[in-house]
Nucleic acid binder design. Structure first.
Lengths: 249, 249
DNA sequence: CGTTGTGTTGATATTAATCAACAAGTGTGG
DNA sequence: CCACACTTGTTGATTAATATCAACACAACG
């Protein structure tokens, strides 16, 4: 069964708009919940910003003044303990919303993994926007619900899965992320690109760098994956990986 | 700083409505976003159900036909692996909403920890309700955002904290849950009631029963807590507990 | 070239899991 | 009222998984 997936919402100010080579619509207006003309009005309220790899654009504990929509690249979202231990709570790719919090301060930090573009709204403008476009609020609620489901899945991973199961889960999940357009081969990318470092993967999976490295080596030795280069992994036996990811064998 | 906390939303059909001894309004209509008369109309669309301890009322993977609002008692929400490993992703107390998922099947199971009452809506009726009351949708988005923040905090706990830190975090978090009314002593209950078993705590914190037991014993020996009975824990040194919970010392 | 960041691999340490025994509380039925 | 099973919780001995410490390989970059 191939899930029907909503297109990622990508808000981009008109000035920065680029036509998409693959989608039918223009890349900055990929949203199935709002009329195009409204989207343009809406996008005009925002600022488009480039973020270089390694650069933080949200700092945990800072006043939450902005709301972001990722329009290109990938961010890592994380929480820190005073002694430096870090948990990456997720990677935010194109279409992701950041900074929804009700609280007045950000509950997490965000840093670019690769060259990013984000679209930034002030929170009052976001509020005005939601009041103007109820459909947008509905869509955001859907987005938040989906993230909640993903968060629960990650809790299962962190609380109960072995290192091997965690890596398999991670690779399978990564393989189902649409890279750009949503219309795609039936949910299956055989080569997974990993823009993040082993350290990021470790902090995402609640492991150490060494364990991530060793576990990938074992998965390779077992014929489940190939590692053509850092930053890419080929899923040689997707069914077996899914089985491992689900806690079987 | 004492956070201003919104009242829990409690929807209860009129037949089951009971006046609250502590709140100014009636207990079943505690919602700061909707007019009382609308709420009554809305509550009339729902069914109130009692759930005995140990009874499941949401099964992971089943068609997601209903949407629930907890009106009394506590539920545990969990995900399972095929071999029986279980991760409790949260405990849902009075005011919590369950079953928001966009997906057509439930992403988690829910089981009553103690005698519960839940208010049940069919999902189409929920949709109609949200269309009728945009304020309700706004409120749900806030709720979902807060749960997302809590989920991230739990990921930090599961991925990076020691057993001792996990227990301390759990106790501190439990101590800040308003039992019934929200207006309360400045955020601080010294005695924490734990309706769930050690096994539930273990599955929530990603530990085993034995480790939970041992760690509580150690916290007691260190003078941070007292354990007058199963089901209750007295925080003897809240500051120290908070310090441990935050990853210090 | 050295330097730095990233990744791999090996040896050892440590935390928490597992295996096991037992204690305390609860409910049942004789 | 007491024997009994059953559930829940505690504590001890041992094991296993992963973390930690350490060395080294390799690529990117000034």
């Amino acid at each position: 069964m191939v899930a029907v997936r909503a297109r990622p919402i990508v808000l981009e100010p008109l000035a920065a708009a680029e036509p998409c080579a693959h989608c039918d619509a223009r890349s900055y207006s990929v949203c199935n919940a709002i009329e195009i003309k409204d989207l343009e009005r809406l996008a005009a309220m925002a600022v488009s910003i480039s973020v270089e790899p390694g650069r933080s654009f949200i700092v945990e504990g800072d006043p939450a003044e902005h709301f972001f929509n990722v329009t290109a690249g990938t961010a890592k979202l994380f929480k820190l303990l005073p002694d430096g231990r870090r948990q990456i709570t997720g990677f935010a790719g194109t279409g992701h919303f950041l900074g929804l919090a009700v609280s007045s301060v950000y509950a997490f930090g965000a840093e670019a993994v690769d060259p990013m573009r984000v679209c930034r709204f002030s929170r009052p403008k976001l509020r005005a926007m939601l009041d103007d476009f109820p459909a947008m609020e509905t869509r955001l609620l859907e987005v938040a619900s989906n993230e909640l489901v993903a968060a629960q899945e990650q809790m299962l991973l962190l609380g109960r899965k072995t290192a091997r199961e965690r890596l398999a889960s991670f690779l399978i999940a990564r393989a189902s992320i649409p890279t750009h357009c949503v219309a795609q081969a039936p949910g299956m990318a055989r080569t997974v690109t990993l823009p993040m470092t082993r350290g990021d993967i470790a902090d995402y999976l609640g492991l150490t760098i060494e364990t991530v490295s060793r576990t990938l080596t074992r998965l390779k030795a077992d014929g489940l994956i190939e590692i053509p280069s850092n930053g890419a992994i080929v899923l040689r036996d997707r069914a077996a990986l899914e089985s491992v990811a689900g806690g079987l064998d």
